[in-house]
Design a protein around this nucleic acid. Sequence first.
DNA 1: GCTAACATGTAGTAAAATTACACCAATTAT
DNA 2: ATAATTGGTGTAATTTTACTACATGTTAGC
Lengths: 273, 273
Amino acid sequence: MLATITQALPRLSPSERRVGQWILEHPKETANITLARLARECGTSEPTVVRFCRHVGLGGFRELAIRLTEALSSPATYVHRNVSPDDATADAVIKVMDASIQSLIEMRSQLSSMPIDEAVDAMKSARQIAFAGLGASGHVARDACHKFFRLGIPCTSLSDIPMILQFAAITQPDDVLVLLSHTGRWQDFARAAKLARDRGATVIALTNPDSTIARESTLLFPCQVIEDTSIYTPMSSRLAQLALLDAVQVALALAQGDTAGNNLRRSKDALKL
Amino acid sequence: MLATITQALPRLSPSERRVGQWILEHPKETANITLARLARECGTSEPTVVRFCRHVGLGGFRELAIRLTEALSSPATYVHRNVSPDDATADAVIKVMDASIQSLIEMRSQLSSMPIDEAVDAMKSARQIAFAGLGASGHVARDACHKFFRLGIPCTSLSDIPMILQFAAITQPDDVLVLLSHTGRWQDFARAAKLARDRGATVIALTNPDSTIARESTLLFPCQVIEDTSIYTPMSSRLAQLALLDAVQVALALAQGDTAGNNLRRSKDALKL
DNA sequence: GCTAACATGTAGTAAAATTACACCAATTAT
DNA sequence: ATAATTGGTGTAATTTTACTACATGTTAGC
């Protein structure tokens, strides 16, 4: 959460930035402050504070308190530092690992705000599930497809724009389309989301909450991008997405009960030598 | 906090006890419920809930939410526990996440014993790199391929046995073959490793150290499999492998110096809109 | 110099938490 | 046995708090 704020800081307006800075300086107090007091403390007005919350991907001021206590009580040990060319290899490797761990820890602390139950509901009764992603997200999509199909649900993975759009155009109401995008910038994804939603399908997005795709989707799993200021930094958020999908898959398996248990067991047995 | 409530339970009045019990049963929901709803949920009135809060040593209802999220998000260690069918969804999801985090932390602690520098050396001067994996590891292989090729080195990913064997049979001394296997059991992989090594190529294995593949390879990155006693447990080691390859890639980029920097920058720029 | 987009604050509204008070039941004292 | 007292509980009013709609000012672009 604190990382999200730090990262969002530069693209905020002056007054909102003051709010963000104050929070970063007094995270503990912010946990149980009142909207009015925080506004006064930052020399601004209440709506500005609320707008700030929205901009960092929160539903409102109330959520800020929750997210913040969450962030403070989870041990934030693996701090993200950038890799620079003069790092010794060992240092660099550790840094990369730490960044990965950190992104998972952050995701963990945000799990409670994710619509997992809703997603599971939609998937449980789905006619088919399609996972769509480009580039690095394409791998995630394929991985997810491979994972979910073992539960006995028809799955596809789509990794180019034409296929995604075509799929969206012929969805049925009980289809589920899962969109994977780190930035949420691809306009065609948003178009696909709208298409599918208009046809009654459930659109689940794992993406930047402050994006078009997020707005066009039925269910949103916010995945903030840790902006990689260093070109060496890999996409740790990719790992987080994978882990999140793991979690959803397990939740779905539990919801399915015996069916899933049997399917999983059979597909594991098939690999035995 | 939850302990405090449990402890206070017997000395509370009937209606307040109902409140306490409901909270203990639904701790996650309580975190962002409203006073009115909680009262209705427990079949009592709002003041009773407030009185309950006072009785367990809190200043008011608002503090309850804070203390509760604190309690829920604080478990310091990410211990791996198995998922069982009667877990509430939220619990299961947290467990899966914890398992993933734990596997990365373990990998981090073993980094120093891994032949990263040797691997980087081999890759830096490689004519080409091939990543081979089946099933879940196939996705890892493709991901790695996509990642390393941005450094300007010719890469392929191989995800079926015949292709892997064929590739191994025609390798040249400055080729690198990376084998990905969780269990290390596939005999054909070991055969491929031997073939390639006989032809002078470098064989890097990310696998179970106690396996044939491990013995046949030039460089070994030991990846222990967290034996999944529960069929619901997903392959967390997959994440660890991904993260490890991330780290190697960054190490390689640093070793390449300017070349890598430029290549990375160019491939990132190509995605800009 | 005008328009459009954005930033920010004012004032109002809805909702949520808290408090004051009244009622009832059970127990105790007369 | 009945009146009085106490603890528990809910109703309704009050206050606080978060949020929204709107208006004003400010900056950037044509």
